[in-house]
Design a protein around this nucleic acid. Structure first.
Lengths: 251, 251
DNA sequence: TTGGTATTGTACCAATTTGATACAATAGTC
DNA sequence: GACTATTGTATCAAATTGGTACAATACCAA
């Protein structure tokens, strides 16, 4: 059930924690490119990360999951907080006003959304092939953009995105989060391509293969992938239990 | 100037962001032990991390610094956010009530402190030798405790402390934060001892020395340390500029 | 003064890990 | 059935790390 936030009232309709928001950076991987899910506000040339607020009766993690579902239709994915954006002047009256006008709302001067907000950043990793973004009622686009070629974001969302990307990079090896961006079964080649785009550099194929397999967190599926006019690679599946053991013993 | 929070009013005296708090885990290193700074509430057997709230006219980083100074007298130290604690039921009416009673305050039933709070965790690293903790007016002890032998904390502060410690551990190598716990000049032996206590394991002396020096972030001071009945070790100083270069090129 | 003790700085070698190349195997195309 | 592109694995060199040896010293005790 989607909630309507943009009323013209001084207080939000549903009880939320005031002056606290959540913004989500949703990463996907497709066509050998790292993608991010962005929303475009109806009738405006303004882009943003999906965000929202925390209800009184939910944890911030529950809130982040709900917000994601409300605003993009995506649910049940890897989600983790990564940073709090708490600048003194973190308020965005102008953008909010524009959005509200376009939605036929004429806010009071002390509308609750005009306050200074502290935003908790979450990043999400999804299996691109399993996701079909859905529009909410204040957006006209909800779609994937190559991180190398994305529209300029409103608010302070460029910084939030940047920090999320840095966190993703440094978590690749230490938390092995990359697998969340791939389908359940994948080839080492696909995994390498994922690592290369996230890290922004080429890796030597044979060494990458040796390294990844030496972690002993992958299970080789007997069935082979087919399609290319060349030797068929093995398919692998990540073994969650082994992965946890590995992380515990190495970090 | 210290603020008085524990009035009996429904709203805090000074304008703060409601339902948001900051808790600080302050680490020090002394006598080859990792220490944490804890407060004991006046007249109660209740211990806590120094915490506080965010004013409307300050960033969360400014707030954390101010809180630290208000509650412990410590200022101008390494401080970094590490996690947000946002459980649905994160409220601590009982402890707050006890504290207020002891401070002769009889709160209304809907006192603002009884609400659910989202707390932003910061960890701080200080040069133990430069710090003299000062008492605020609701505490009767403000002192250092060995992390292996500390009192049971109130609220959810045990979890907050634990998460801070994990963050410190994993940041040792990737952010080289350890130096913030030592005086400006130190020996490699002292640095090794610091690493050993934080990581909780012994390191091989000669390899540690080689490793640290190979980072090329230390400047050897000609003057030598003296005192022990053995060969005098060199003193070193961390070169902040070189350190930044190192971190940029390696992470 | 001198020998003893504890600790430091560095050298050194073995074991392991990583970088880079070579090559056989093979699925599909022509 | 030859050709192409890619995969899996082997291999060797280079770099890093684990672990030992040893000379250098600052102080202490006779």
């Amino acid at each position: 059930m989607k909630e309507r936030y943009f009323t013209d009232e001084r207080k939000p309709k549903k009880r939320i924690i005031e002056q606290v928001s959540i913004d989500c950076v949703i990463f996907g991987f497709y066509d050998n490119q790292l993608k991010v899910l962005l929303l475009k506000f109806k009738g405006l040339d303004a882009w943003a990360l999906p965000g929202g607020f925390v209800f009184h009766n939910e944890s911030i993690e529950e809130a982040a999951n709900r917000i994601l579902e409300d605003r993009t239709g995506i649910r049940n994915i890897y989600l983790e907080q990564f940073y709090v954006f708490g600048d003194k002047n973190r308020q965005f009256r102008e953008v909010h006003e524009e959005v509200m006008y376009k939605n036929s709302i004429h806010p009071q001067d002390n509308h609750w959304l005009f306050q200074r907000f502290i935003s908790i950043g979450f990043y999400a990793l999804v299996d691109f092939s399993k996701v079909t973004p859905e529009l909410d009622d204040i957006s006209e686009i909800c779609g994937w953009y190559d991180i190398e070629d994305m529209p300029l974001l409103s608010f302070d969302h460029p910084q939030i995105f940047q920090k999320a990307l840095e966190t993703l990079r440094s978590s690749l090896d230490t938390k092995l989060v990359g697998f969340n961006l791939l389908p359940e079964m994948f080839t080492i080649g696909e995994l390498q391509s994922l690592y290369e785009t996230i890290l922004g550099k080429k890796l030597i194929r044979t060494n990458f293969q040796r390294k990844i397999l030496s972690l002993e967190i992958l299970e080789r599926i007997e069935k082979k992938y087919s399609g290319g006019s060349h030797k068929a690679p093995y398919l692998y599946r990540m073994d969650v239990a082994k992965c946890e053991v590995f992380l515990k013993t190495h970090f």
